[in-house]
């Protein structure tokens, strides 16, 4: 079985982002970019499944500008077998991305597709569900545990839901999106980073895949959230209780 994993290049999670003065977006020039943390977890899970002998190949896919190749190289250094880069600047919304991924699934025929549950830049939490819908595959979103049964061709997925953990059983092929607690992604070692340089990254354009990158959402403006007014440092529990009672009137 082949596993495909989608990885996204985003502003590093630790960066304090800045909104552009002209309100058209968030500054991404000269800002540290990394692989989306949920995508790292997705890739790690795919690698573990391959290492346990349940899959033969892990293919990492990224859609976006030329620099996405760096993100794919990171994935290859972690252990993915090969990469696919679909180069596109425009229309990079979850629906178009899901359509590109569907086209790649039709070409590559994987038995499992793993994605992160959300990208930490747009915070959409949509792509995996949309891909599953387009493919008419079952979906296991917000996964915190995945167990494959090769004989029966099913995956048991523990999902992090509002009330606790929900367990579902999915027929393969399926789409799984990862939550934070699924695993602890590995670091790429230097030898593996060197090895990754010789691994293949195949290039496509959305046109090659007959997907039109368009968006039915227009960004009107991006602004900073309202600032909270400065707070005070207090010195004792008594003072805290007084403030909460008399000033804030919340207890």
């Amino acid at each position: 079985m082949k596993i495909m994993v989608a990885v996204k290049r985003v502003v590093d999670y630790a960066v304090k982002i800045r909104v552009k003065p002209d309100k058209t977006g968030v500054e991404t020039k000269n800002v540290k970019m990394s692989m989306n943390p949920f995508c790292e977890i997705a890739l790690e899970e795919a690698l573990r499944i391959r290492e346990s002998g349940l899959a033969s190949e892990v293919v990492a896919v990224s859609i976006g500008p030329a620099q996405c190749v760096d993100t794919l190289r990171t994935g290859l250094a972690m252990g993915a077998d090969r990469g696919i880069h679909v180069e596109s600047q425009d229309g990079l919304n979850p629906l178009s991305v899901a359509k590109v991924l569907r086209a790649l699934v039709e070409a590559e025929k994987p038995g499992l597709f793993i994605l992160g549950k959300q990208a930490i830049d747009d915070d959409c939490n949509q792509t995996g569900q949309m891909l599953a819908g387009l493919l008419k595959w079952p979906q296991g979103t917000f996964a915190s545990k995945v167990t494959l049964d090769k004989e029966k061709q099913v995956a048991t997925v523990d999902r992090e839901v509002d009330g606790g953990i929900e367990t579902v059983l999915l027929d393969l092929p399926a789409v799984i999106t990862t939550d934070l607690r699924l695993n602890q992604p590995r670091y790429a070692t230097l030898p593996n980073i060197m090895k990754a340089k010789s691994k293949v990254i195949k290039k496509y354009t959305p046109g090659d895949l007959n997907v039109e990158m368009k968006s039915d959402l227009e960004v009107l403006q991006v602004t900073e959230p309202p600032k909270r007014k400065a707070g005070v440092i207090i010195s004792s529990v008594d003072e805290l209780i007084d403030k909460l009672k008399d000033e804030a009137r919340v207890i």
């Binding site: 569900q129 819908g133 387009l134 979906q139 839901v161 959402l217």
Partner: peptide, 23 residues
């Protein structure tokens, strides 16, 4: 946009071929 809505709505949106807006 709880875990129920986030799980279901984007899938339905893909079936209807429209972009949903999250949160």
């Amino acid at each position: 946009s709880g875990s129920f809505g986030k799980n279901i709505l984007p899938r339905a949106a893909a079936l209807l071929d429209v972009s949903p807006v999250t949160d």
